[in-house]
């Protein structure tokens, strides 16, 4: 009862109301902030490639639309990697193998990396990519739906649809799976 009286009094206190409302406002902003895409998952449709996503190329720094790169072959692979990422080294051999199957063009997105390190990585281990794009602050990869490195997406070039997504490095099992999907989709 006493509490109720006090509460009634306090509701009339304009300072109190303002402070409470203000802190609630901050609370909800932070709460929303926690859900925002660059922390966790974007709320967009993840099976389609965003139409307006542009990247800078690694070597000549030209802006390019990601969608334009996805039409050379039947299938594309988008691989998000970085020179500082150890698992990326492990999966590199599979990307080189995929490149030799010539039905796929492989697009690399260099994630939060220094250009010099990225270039060194490719000259040391070989370049499986038909095009290397950069994502300096990691925001573009997030819009693609990435949550870390490495990640690999297999895209059907006809309808620009992401067929499968691999979080983490490619291995022998995933490699075979990719080849199988390509085989099936063609028939």
């Amino acid at each position: 009862m006493v509490l109720l009286v006090i509460l009634k009094k306090m509701i009339k206190n304009i300072k109190f109301i303002i402070i409470i409302l203000f802190s609630l406002f901050i609370f909800f902003i932070f709460l929303k902030g926690l859900e925002k895409p660059n922390n966790y998952f974007p709320e967009k449709n993840l099976n389609k490639i965003e139409t307006n996503l542009t990247f800078k190329k690694l070597y000549d720094q030209k802006e390019v639309l990601l969608l334009e790169l996805i039409n050379n072959n039947n299938f594309s692979i988008i691989n998000i990697w970085a020179s500082w990422c150890l698992p990326c080294r492990d999966e590199h051999i599979y990307l080189l193998n995929l490149k030799s199957t010539d039905k796929i063009n492989i697009i690399g997105i260099n994630y939060k990396d220094k250009k010099s390190n990225a270039v060194k990585f490719l000259s040391d281990l070989g370049n499986p990519y038909s095009e290397v794009l950069t994502d300096l602050d990691g925001t573009k990869s997030i819009e693609l739906g990435a949550i870390g490195v490495p990640e690999t997406y297999l895209v059907n070039n006809k309808n620009k649809e992401i067929l499968t997504k691999y979080i983490g490095p490619l291995d022998a099992v995933k490699f075979k799976e990719i080849l199988k999907i390509i085989e099936n989709e063609k028939n």
Binding site: L34, E35, N38, N39, Y40, K112, G138, I142, I147, G148
Partner: peptide, 9 residues
């Protein structure tokens, strides 16, 4: 958001 893997919402 460097190591989003380790983060649990």
């Amino acid at each position: 958001s460097i190591h989003t893997f380790a983060n649990d919402p």
